[in-house]
Design a protein around this nucleic acid. Sequence first.
DNA 1: CTGTGTGAAGGCTTTCACAGCC
DNA 2: GGCTGTGAAAGCCTTCACACAG
Lengths: 209, 209
Amino acid sequence: MGYVMKVSIPRKTIYRLSVYHHCLGQLTPDAGGRISSDALARVAGVKPTQLRKDLAHFGHLGKRGLGYEVETLREKLAEVLGTSKLQPVILIGAGNLGSALLRYQGFAREGFEIVAAFDSDPEKRRKCNNGVVVYDLDELPRIIRETGARMAILSVPSEVAQQVTNTLVQSGIKAILNFAPIILQVPPNVMVNNVNLAVELENLSYFVQ
Amino acid sequence: MGYVMKVSIPRKTIYRLSVYHHCLGQLTPDAGGRISSDALARVAGVKPTQLRKDLAHFGHLGKRGLGYEVETLREKLAEVLGTSKLQPVILIGAGNLGSALLRYQGFAREGFEIVAAFDSDPEKRRKCNNGVVVYDLDELPRIIRETGARMAILSVPSEVAQQVTNTLVQSGIKAILNFAPIILQVPPNVMVNNVNLAVELENLSYFVQ
DNA sequence: CTGTGTGAAGGCTTTCACAGCC
DNA sequence: GGCTGTGAAAGCCTTCACACAG
């Protein structure tokens, strides 16, 4: 019944943890099933000391002189990130981008299952995309309750994004991956990650000049 | 014929510049066509002082006691970001995500035009998506030369991403928006922005626990 | 000897406090 | 009075240097 000191892990570290987790699959361990911080850091695109410091937040995961055991590390990372068990996710907005995300295999590979989709357009609801049923927005509270989903992917037009977000928050969603190019207003206990494709391109544009 | 001191602008500032640029469209100026740093910062999701510091890199853009003139600011930001003139962009990988990006209207709104797409699958090349012709990968060097494109969107499977990147770099591409979940190796004069959807979800997952 | 773990140093970004102009 | 511009301070993150374990 030990205390766990609540030392908050830097957000950037958490972000890189995901990257490390991915990269573990991309390289071959040595004979003992181990890998060095140098090797992993190279594929992850970071410095070895940073990798070690990041991992050190979660205990003595490596063995000095030997490196990190790949399987143990993979499990630990999944545990920390909360992807060791399948996470139910809902998707709102089955339009152009939304339906592509529904078919995207990368989510499933990392332990996420899109359990339901939503769209206001009856046309979009007709065909259930990739085996996922597309519901009306009215059904949001009910389905969230029934599936126990706490994460949502938001790919609706900007004009309705805030309004839909309010419903999501009221229904108990705790994390939103937002593709709409606006800053969502949410209570402090709800987390939002923004993916703004136009901003990413615009950013590159600066460096091309 | 004045010197322009090459003070390098922080990357994060450049990133936020894009956000400010977007946000300018989302709010109504005052009677004099002006807006305060407080108001703009609120929609952009940053602190007013940060906004002012960011903008201060590019001269005295605001008027004390009055704020920033919306139109002047918009033009200045577009100029700095290099989006004041239409930027040609190519897209490689017209699969699930790629074809959604081809149809995505957000790029055009910000001054980018996808001038050509590429895919190794002849099936994908049959239908020219959204008025954009899908070419074979063999055509990459020729089309890049002819269109003068310096930016590329990469939405191919991870397995071929590095190989395609090499071709892009050889053909003169200077910036890549990469959707493949691997770290691309490129020379220092080529810029890569990674968008890793699974990592974004995984990152949220941590905070939901 | 190899490669991890970590306090200390360094560098970068954000925030503060207030001077300066309209 | 209102709001921007900016040096100084604070905070955060990365990198270094090296102790330490296998």
